[in-house]
């Protein structure tokens, strides 16, 4: 059994990755888009210290919990330019004897920033939910695979 390590990463501004991780772990109930989604997003901005920019937390890998398929869920505020950090985490894991292929990096801003700003609030929740569902499905399939 190969359990994934899912790393939801984002610039550190906004709620996309914390929201995705919370949805993944079932900490937030999926709700229809609209006012309810905006309210949840707003409360996450207030409650999670990364809502206003990564700042001193940039680069810190934050373990949030373990999913139903045994996958470990992490948050990574990476700043604007995060490619080096993702490479570094994967290569350091390899250095420490881990299988780097079990590390999955999900860019939460890639799938949530394609719509006009006016529709962002309405669409954000739905898009993140779709993304998380796909990730969870993938994690389930991966967990069923035999180990190396």
């Amino acid at each position: 059994m190969r359990n994934k390590k899912i790393i939801y990463h984002w610039s550190g501004r906004g709620v996309s990755a914390p929201l995705a991780a919370a949805l993944h772990l079932g900490l937030v109930e999926p709700t229809p888009a609209g006012t309810a989604a905006r309210k949840i997003a707003r409360s996450l901005v207030g409650g999670i210290p990364f809502g206003r920019g990564a700042g001193k937390e940039k680069g810190t890998l934050i373990f949030l919990g373990t999913g139903k398929s045994g996958e470990k869920v992490y948050l990574l505020p990476r700043g604007k330019e995060g490619k080096l950090l993702l490479t570094l985490i994967q290569e350091t894991a390899r250095l420490l004897g881990e299988d780097p292929d079990t590390y999955y990096f999900i860019d939460c801003e890639l799938c949530t920033s394609r719509q006009p700003a006016s529709r962002k609030g309405k669409e954000l929740f739905r898009r993140i939910e779709e993304m998380v569902l796909a990730v969870k499905e993938d994690a389930r399939a991966c967990a069923a695979l035999p180990g190396p």
Binding site: G59, Y74, L88, L96
Partner: peptide, 23 residues
């Protein structure tokens, strides 16, 4: 130019893996 963030990434990862004394 990402030394602080890079060091945080390495140290947090090694901490999560329980291998912080190996690096």
């Amino acid at each position: 130019s990402q030394t602080p963030a890079g060091l945080r990434a390495i140290t947090s990862l090694t901490w999560h893996l329980g291998k912080k004394d190996e690096i």
